[in-house]
Amino acid sequence: MVTDATTRPVTIITGASRGIGAEIARRLARVGHDLVITYRDRVADAESVKAECEASGSRVLLIAVDMSDLDAAAAVVPAAIAEFGTVTGLVNNAGITGRIGPFLDAPLEETELVFRVNVLAPIVVTQAAIAHMSTERGGNGGSVVNISSGAATSGSPNTYITYAMSKAALNALTTGASKEFGPVGVRVNTVSPGTTRTEIHAAAGRPNAPDERAPGIPMRRPGEVHEIAGAVVYLLSDDASYTSGADIRVAGGN
């Protein structure tokens, strides 16, 4: 475990007040990362995650930011650097699905919001992070992990096609950026969860969706947040030093 504050990795996790993001934060804290955690409005939840991570020895900066506000999203990396002096990792986790339902019922305004949060915000934050990490620009390298979805390749018919489209765009970010920035010390990878037991389904109007989908999953159950977080921790670790452009699918066999 890393203990020297001057050499500890510093990782930004967007949308980490609950669910998968919160579990990623807890796991990274336990293996020696200092953390920058963004959240939108769940301040009590964010403070609770911060306290847990600090109990594991991490220094933690909380930033309240609505990721649909691209100017606010652009300020995340500079704030992290101002606090810790560096950023070595970024997890683009914040995301929304829009309402579950048929494609023809998807309002354009909602789809625009999905793309602002799931695609444009990660672009803005990733550009700033890579500009800081790039050895060509004086950085020390680093790692980016994009949290995508199994929906990116299934298309999610009758469920949320536009969400699936946004996650396919995130996959393209991994593919392109891993090739462009591999020569300058930056690894970029994807973790694609399948149906996972989080609150995102309630926000989409179907709180029981994970259990409803279980019969169609080869392992016959939804995933749990710790099963997703483990893949992210691996990709940010030295064990993944030769892994870039990968998509680790954690989807119970789907």
Rank of each mutant, 00 (worst) to 15 (best):
I147W: 01
V87C: 02
T88S: 15
P193I: 03
P193V: 01
E136Q: 14
A80Q: 03
A82C: 08
V119Q: 09
G85Y: 06
Q127I: 04
P183E: 01
I96L: 10
S56D: 14
A55I: 11
L120F: 11
D69T: 13
A73V: 11
V119H: 10
V124Q: 06
P157M: 05
A72T: 12
S166F: 08
V186D: 13
P157R: 09
N171G: 04
R187V: 01
V60P: 06
N146P: 13
V145Y: 11
R59D: 07
A172Y: 09
F103W: 13
I81K: 15
A128L: 06
G185L: 04
P102K: 00
N171K: 04
E54W: 01
R137Q: 14
V124C: 09
S143T: 15
I81V: 15
V76S: 02
P78V: 00
E109H: 09
N189F: 02
V191W: 01
T190S: 09
T111N: 13
A79I: 09
S56K: 11
P102T: 01
H132K: 12
V114D: 07
D105F: 11
A106M: 14
A131T: 14
I130D: 03
A128H: 09
V114E: 10
N146M: 15
E54Y: 00
E180Y: 11
V117I: 14
V87Q: 03
S149K: 00
G89D: 08
R99L: 15
T126F: 07
G85E: 05
